[in-house]
Design a binder for these strands. Structure first.
Length: 564
RNA sequence: CGGGGUGUAGCGCAGUCCGGUUAGCGCACCUGUUUUGGGAACAGGGGGCCGCAAGUUCGAAUCUUGCUACCCCGACCA
């Protein structure tokens, strides 16, 4: 029999003041997790049960689409990561260390290299494809700033699946099946998710969809237009060419003196103009050669778009700025320079702009991009924001939502298989690299997102699918042994109906038990106490609605219909 | 990595400015009695390297310096 004593129920009244999110506070107060270091958590028994239920749902759905579970090592030799090229590219999120023989290793933040290595050792023919492997295991990413409990931790549990194919069509089929499975998984957890077009980021590849739980505390921003059926991560959302041609005549551009105006806000204040009529110029370095990016003064660069356009890049240093343009930061402009220039489509909106003059304390006014920057190439450079025209229907605009990224699917293509020389023989007898997909779900983050959606002032309020126990029996008079047989019969009956049940057997006062039961959020409470002895009735209370129903101990079977 | 803040009992905090009995409070914990349908009452009790180290001083939780951990904000957009 599960009791509060043996199940390690460790609730606390006050949560540490470093917990900001409701989900983080409640997970600590209910004794689900305990912090060990920044972004590193112990999952306590109550939390473990919730995680296991989540994991079992994921496992069911992964198995249902024919993928096979395995467990990949957390400790990965550097050589494998050097093969894919990521040992040098991944940066400091990758926790590296050496063993006693000074051999370099890393803790796996993701497992494309490992799985590619494993599969290429065994799969040599197209006849063995397609195939999908997955694991549900611990990952480590040395986040710049872990926060929000298990929502953004450094060590975390993730379901990651990898599929291998001999054709793009085959990948498409698995990619679609996986998304269907994701929708079923999140639905079974009681979560409402949106699927958004996303940027594939550090993983690489060419197409990806992100699954987000809409929540104010979400760290991701998505842009949506429901009528147009459009949902995209703001990082991945295109901005459109407005196609405006101006017919007003703009006077020739002219340099003006603008002392101490290095920032857009300075020049706006000095000239009495708005940021959207300023042209912001940014110098980047690609393979140590300068490239200039120009965009409207009120908009921000989208680094992912730049990377797609020019490849890997870095921001120019002040010294490089001075070397190539002869001015300090703040006075950069696209005129009179041999440096290649990219112009954001947004610069077609106004007939003319004010921009830096490549000379300290000077700007240029009346700059008409088409006329004055003929060497500039037009492109989409900026971050999309709410109010921009919707990419799938420019007659409407997009609005912004915050979301928690709980799942992500990617089409990797041959990025890893080519780098690692992982090949098979196809039907015509030629060797070709595997076409791959990869698919992740953050287990802890999904649990936390679920709590963000399911709680009230009294505590957690689990959906039946994730509750650590479906039913709690509150024994209000634990010293009265007359109640013991009733409780034993109840436990046996409830378990025979297929529900898990825990008994609060502590010698505390009733108020403590009611409050803890509410805090822990079991879907149903069964209350047994003096009233039971007096009247022969037990009570069943629904956590979510507060609805209470009395049931005679002589007719326990009717309880079954009140527990779902 | 830059800026700010905090480390005192298991948890939440006071005390630090202005050095001076035995370092306090609430919750939790232990013993006993009475309680027991929404965080019980009384009585008694235990628990501290005051983050670590060095320094100043007759004397340091308190002052100085260094280190460390944790939290918050920001992070190449000129």
């Amino acid at each position: 029999m599960h009791t509060y004593t043996n199940a390690f129920v460790v609730t606390v009244k006050e949560s540490p003041n470093d917990a900001e999110l409701v989900s983080h506070q409640l997970m600590i107060r209910a004794g689900l997790i305990k912090k060990m270091a920044a972004g590193v958590y112990t999952i306590l028994p109550m939390g473990h049960r919730v995680f296991q239920k989540m994991i079992q749902i994921i496992r069911d759905e992964m198995n249902a689409i024919g993928s096979a579970e395995c467990t990949l090592p957390v400790t990965i030799p550097a050589d494998l990561w050097k093969k894919s090229g990521r040992w040098d590219k991944y940066g400091r999120e990758l926790l590296r260390f050496v063993d006693r023989h000074d051999r370099p290793f890393c803790l796996g933040p993701t497992h494309e290299e490992v799985i590619t290595d494993v599969v290429s050792a065994y799969v040599t023919s197209y006849k063995q494809l397609p195939m999908t492997l997955y694991q549900i295991h611990t990952k480590f990413r040395d986040e710049i700033r872990p926060r929000f409990g298990v929502m953004r931790s450094r060590e975390f549990i993730m379901k990651d699946a990898y599929s291998f194919h001999d054709s793009a069509e085959s990948l498409d089929a698995t990619y679609a099946a996986m998304q269907q499975a994701y929708h079923r998984i999140f639905e079974r957890c009681g979560l409402t998710v949106v699927a958004a077009q996303a940027d594939s980021g550090a993983i690489g590849g060419n197409e990806s969809v992100e699954f987000l739980v809409v929540a104010a505390c979400g760290e991701d921003s998505v842009l949506v237009n429901t009528e147009a059926g459009f949902v995209a991560n703001s990082e991945a959302c295109p901005t459109l060419d407005p196609g405006i041609v101006h017919h007003v005549s703009v006077p020739p551009y002219a340099m003006i003196h603008t002392p101490n105006c290095p920032r857009i806000t300075d020049i706006c204040a000095y000239r009495g103009i708005q940021p959207n009529v300023c042209l912001k110029s940014i110098l980047i370095m690609v393979n140590d050669a300068p490239i200039m990016l120009c965009l409207p003064g009120d908009r921000d660069i989208n680094e992912a778009k730049i990377q797609r356009l020019v490849g890997a890049f870095r921001w120019a240093t002040s010294a490089e700025l001075t070397h190539y343009l002869g001015c300090s930061p703040g006075y950069v402009g696209p005129l009179n320079t041999e440096i290649p220039v990219w112009l954001d489509y947004g610069l077609k909106t106004q007939p003319h702009y004010t921009c830096g003059a490549n000379q300290d304390d000077h700007h240029v006014v009346n700059v008409s991009p088409d006329r004055d920057i003929p060497h500039g190439q037009w492109a989409d450079l900026k971050m999309a924001i709410a109010g921009d025209p919707c990419p799938s229907d420019p007659s409407v605009t997009v609005s912004a939502l915050r979301g928690i990224e709980v799942g992500h699917v990617f089409k990797l293509g041959t990025t890893y298989s080519q780098a690692m020389d992982a090949t098979f023989t196809n039907a015509t007898g030629t060797r070709m690299p595997f076409i791959m997909g990869c698919y992740g779900i953050g287990v802890g983050r999904t649990v936390a997102a679920c709590i963000e959606q399911c709680h009230d002032d009294n505590g957690l309020c689990w959906p039946a699918a994730l509750a650590p126990f479906h039913v709690v029996i509150l024994n209000l008079c634990p010293k009265n042994t007359d109640l013991d047989p009733i409780i034993q019969r109840l436990v046996a009956a409830i378990e025979s109906w297929g529900y898990d049940v825990i008994v609060d057997n502590r010698p505390d006062s009733p108020g403590v038990k009611f409050n803890d039961a509410d805090l822990l959020g079991f879907p149903y409470q069964i209350i047994v106490g003096r009233k039971t002895l007096d009247s022969g009735h037990i009570e069943r209370k629904c956590r979510k609605t507060g609805e209470t129903i009395g049931v005679s101990v002589t007719q326990m079977d009717v309880l079954k219909s009140y527990l779902n």
